[in-house]
């Protein structure tokens, strides 16, 4: 298996590959009482993706992820705000953007009568560019030459997804926009895909992808944005997001428990002889300092997972946006 080395490295640049400012999208839903009804699919979205970054875009169905992606690729026209991809305006310069990007739609549909190889050739010719990564991608995703000679209509869901990934990346785009890329892939192929993403990052290429699989976002992304009801609720590095979430702490001692009321970020929820339960937000250092020298029998600090952070942001009493103001570009990136 050869590595996915691009033919020429991307020159370093400081401008973001995706810069979205106050982007909004409203759909008319009809007229009622002389007024035009509208549904807000996207509301004042502001995010940026830096060169060489893998950026996760999270939210449940209907949150506005696909709307944002479709605006970036020119399928939809924004109602407000603006977006630039690779320095080009998404409304005016769609062709230039699409010449330099690769796109995998969610649940990709392919031309069923073509063979896999013919399909990949055809889609590559529409870019008018060579396909330096085709061989290594088919190798990594275990699509044999015999498979590629079969008509796409005979492919399983997973094989279609592999072809979808290859068509999006085979021409070594500067930016890949992937909508639910691991949908339909088995765990082995998911790992192969993560390795492909890692090599994209090392080659200086950028990836912007939406996913429902929070563990994979946590694993591969430098930064994430979470949207809810079309609005951005969080945009930061994965570490920052995890550091902000409350973790469950359980302390067991031989005898009395220490008084931890002064520990920053700690909210004690239950105290019994030999047992203390609390919620910890932020750094664990002050807690460890406070219990140093105490006869601790067991200490459980639940690892911070993106899934819990995500669910916290989606709880009914979650704030409309995370405290801390707008995201800091590349802050805390891995």
């Amino acid at each position: 298996m050869g590595p996915l080395v691009p033919p020429s490295p991307v020159p370093p640049t400081r401008s973001p590959v995706i810069a979205i400012e106050g982007l909004g999208k409203r759909y008319p839903t009809g007229r009622r009482g002389g007024h035009r009804d509208e549904v807000v699919a996207l509301d004042s979205l502001t995010i940026d993706v830096q060169p060489g970054e893998i950026y996760g875009f999270l939210g449940p169905n209907g949150a506005g992820k696909s709307t944002a992606i479709r605006i970036l690729l020119g399928f939809l026209h924004p109602s407000s705000g603006r977006a630039r991809v690779l320095g080009h305006d998404v409304v005016r310069d769609g062709l230039r953007i699409r010449a330099r990007t690769g796109y995998l739609p969610a649940g990709i549909d392919l031309y069923d009568t073509m063979t896999g190889a013919d399909l990949l050739d055809y889609l590559a010719r529409l870019y008018g560019q060579p396909t330096p990564l085709r061989a290594s991608l088919t190798d990594r995703l275990e699509l044999a030459a015999a498979d590629l000679r079969r008509p796409v209509r005979d492919y399983s869901r997973g094989m279609r997804q592999k072809v979808g990934i290859i068509q999006a990346l085979q021409h070594d785009p500067e930016l890949a926009i992937l909508d639910e890329p691991t949908e339909g892939l088995d765990p082995l192929m998911q790992h192969a895909f993560y390795a492909i993403l890692e090599e994209r990052r090392q080659a200086g290429r950028s990836v912007f992808f939406s996913s429902h699989v929070l563990s994979e976002v946590e694993r591969v992304c430098d930064r994430v944005a979470i949207i809810r009801g079309g609005r951005l609720v969080a945009a930061s590095s994965v570490e920052q997001l995890l550091a902000r979430r409350r973790r469950h702490v359980e302390l067991r001692t031989d005898g009395d428990v220490p008084d931890l009321r002064g520990v920053p970020g700690l909210s004690v929820t239950e105290v019994r002889p030999g047992l203390l339960r609390a919620e910890l937000e932020g750094d664990v250092g002050p807690l460890l300092a406070a219990i140093a020298g105490w006869p601790v029998r067991d200490l459980l600090i639940e690892p911070a997972r993106l899934e819990e952070a995500f669910l916290e942001l989606y709880s009914p009493d979650a704030p409309a946006t995370l405290p801390g103001g707008p995201p800091d570009p590349r802050a805390g990136a891995r």
């Binding site: 062709l95 699409r98 990007t101 739609p105 549909d109 889609l123 870019y127």
Partner: peptide, 14 residues
């Protein structure tokens, strides 16, 4: 309707 138009128009094809 088949969903292939978006694969086509995600290329530099106006």
């Amino acid at each position: 309707q088949r969903g292939t138009l978006e694969v086509l128009l995600s290329r530099p094809v106006s």
